[in-house]
Amino acid sequence: MESKKTCTGPDEGLDIKDSSRRNFLKQSTLLTAIALTPGTAIKAAADHVDEQFAAVFEKMPLKMEVNGKQQSLSVEPRSTLLDILREQLDLTGTKKGCDHGQCGACTVHVDGHRVNSCLTLGIMVNGKKITTIEGLAKGDQLHPMQEAFIKHDGFQCGYCTPGQIMSAVACIREGHANSEHEIREYMSGNICRCGAYPNIVNAIQEVKDGGMKV
C-alpha cells in the first residue's frame, strides 16, 4: 500500500449498529492490536508502522448463530464460511467438493436462503443465522427431506448429500418444486457424481406432495 496513513484496523466507516464491531474498534489501536497479534505480524509491523500493519492484522471477531447456537469466533477475513464450519467448528457435514462455487456440496442456509459457503467469507455473515445439515433434524427426529432421501436412495457415496438436502429443502421453500422439470432445474446447482439425480427428484417430489412442513 502506498498511502502513509496511521493504522486504524478494519474499522473504516464502521457499521455502528453492530456492538461487537464497536467493541472491536475500541480495542484496535495499534498497541492493543500488537498485543493481540501473533509474532509474525509484530515483526512486519515493526518494519513499517503504517497501513501495512492493517494488512497483516490477522483476525476479526465473528458472531453468528449456527444451528441455533450462538458462536463467537475470531477469524481471518480470508476464511470462508465453509472452512470455518469444517475446520473451526468441526461441522464437517458441510462438504468441500470444489471450493469454487461449481458443485454445491457446500450448500448451507444463511438466514434461510441456500448459498455456497465456499464463496462466502465468514466475516460477511456476521450476525446471521446459519443452518447446516447438522441442524436440520430435530434431535433424533429426521427432517422429512432426510427421511425421503433415505427412502428413495438419493445418494450413493453420500458426499454431495448434505448439500443436496439443504438445496432440496430450499427448493421446496422457494416454491420451485412444482414439477419434475422444475425440480431438476432448481437442483442443478448440486452435482452428484454417483448419479442419484432421479432418486433425488423422487425424494423431493414425495416431500412436496406429502405437504409436510419443510
Binding site: 478494519p10 473504516e12 466507516g13 464502521l14 494488512a55 497483516v56 481471518e76 477475513p77
Partner: peptide, 17 residues
C-alpha cells in the same frame, strides 16, 4: 493472501475508500 476487510456504513464512506 491476507487482506483488510472494511464495511463502511454509507455510500460516501464507500466512495471515500
Amino acid at each position: 493472501k491476507q487482506f483488510q476487510y472494511v464495511r463502511p456504513a454509507t455510500q460516501q464512506g464507500v466512495l471515500d475508500v
